[in-house]
């Protein structure tokens, strides 16, 4: 794999060198330089557990180490539904070439009858950069969790519905949903379930997952970069974990803790007592000596 990478790299280098040599001697070079640079656009839609919806757009040019974001460039966001196009917003990229646009909670995209919105981001380009545009299909999805114990086996049942303009729910089939449990840093995946024609997926949950102090587990369902729904996460809490003690136990009396073992304190104390007792005994003799003078 690595060697393959190396070969590709070498070939690329060779090509660049050859091209540069060819171009530098010909008049064509001037024209090529004047040619506009290619621009890449990335666009994602995501909806997090809190229901916050976000459209992220990234505008970059160059490749490899020279890749950089295009800052302060205008991007127009259009929406197409039922053969008509609206301009949703005119946005500007930040210093990294990024746009993060949140959608207000009650904001609704123009949708077609299937509940699908088409969002298009366009960058007009300028003297140096070519223009580019990207399209995204977005539909609203909803997850429902139910928890079931069947023959002492724990099952998580998830139902996926598409919500259209009239808030009608349509089951989504053949959707791969990642199920995991929320951990401190990330989600620990359990498995991927595929929904059936009723939009229902069923997953066996292992018995030995540690939960919080009460044994609560936060289950997270997630679809990633789906063509229609983007990236959506939804979580639900249920008492199916093994409880973890959150009590802070005092550290034992040990060599590596603040409190020393008793025997150690005793040994030092007794030794010191013995030594200093004799010291003061001999000093007392000197005091007697002085008194007798």
């Amino acid at each position: 794999m690595n060697s393959l990478k190396k070969i590709i790299k070498n070939i690329t280098y060779a090509l660049i060198i050859v091209t540069v040599n060819l171009l530098s001697v010909s008049e064509v070079s001037a024209k090529v330089q004047a040619k506009k640079e290619r621009v890449r656009m990335k666009m994602y839609y995501s909806k997090n557990d809190a229901g916050e919806r976000l459209i992220s757009i990234g505008l970059t040019a160059g490749s490899g180490k020279k890749m950089h974001g295009l800052k302060n460039e205008k991007v127009i966001l259009n929406s197409t539904a039922n053969d008509s196009t609206f301009t949703l917003a005119i946005l500007e990229t930040d210093s990294l070439g990024l746009i993060n646009l949140y959608l207000a909670n009650d904001y609704k995209f123009p949708m077609d009858e299937n509940g699908i919105s088409i969002i298009k981001a366009s960058y007009g380009g300028d003297d140096t950069y070519r223009s580019i545009s990207k399209e995204l299909e977005i539909a609203d999805i909803e997850f429902d969790f139910t928890f079931e114990i069947d023959d002492s086996v724990k099952y998580l049942i998830i139902k996926a519905n598409k919500i259209d303009r009239e808030e009608n729910k349509t089951p989504i089939n053949e959707l791969d949903i990642k199920i995991g449990v929320q951990r401190l840093y990330s989600v620990l995946p359990i498995d991927i379930v595929e929904t059936n024609e009723d939009g229902i997926g069923k997953l066996e949950i292992p018995d030995d997952l540690p939960g919080d102090a009460e044994g609560n587990l936060t289950f997270v369902a997630k679809i990633e970069d789906h063509d229609e729904f983007g990236t959506v996460t939804k979580s639900a809490s249920h008492e199916w974990g093994t409880p973890v003690s959150y009590e802070v136990k005092p550290l034992p009396r040990q060599l590596y803790t603040d409190e020393a073992p008793i025997w150690m304190i005793a040994a030092v104390f007794i030794t010191l007592l013995g030594a200093w007792y004799h010291f003061f005994l001999s000093i007392s003799k000197l005091i007697k000596l002085k008194k007798s003078a």
Binding site: L281, S282, K285, L286, L289, K290, A293
Partner: peptide, 20 residues
Amino acid sequence: LGYKGTADQKKYLHQAHDIM
């Protein structure tokens, strides 16, 4: 310490010495 070399003083000094 006012040492004069009396028998008592000698004894005390030696005791102090020995203990130390």
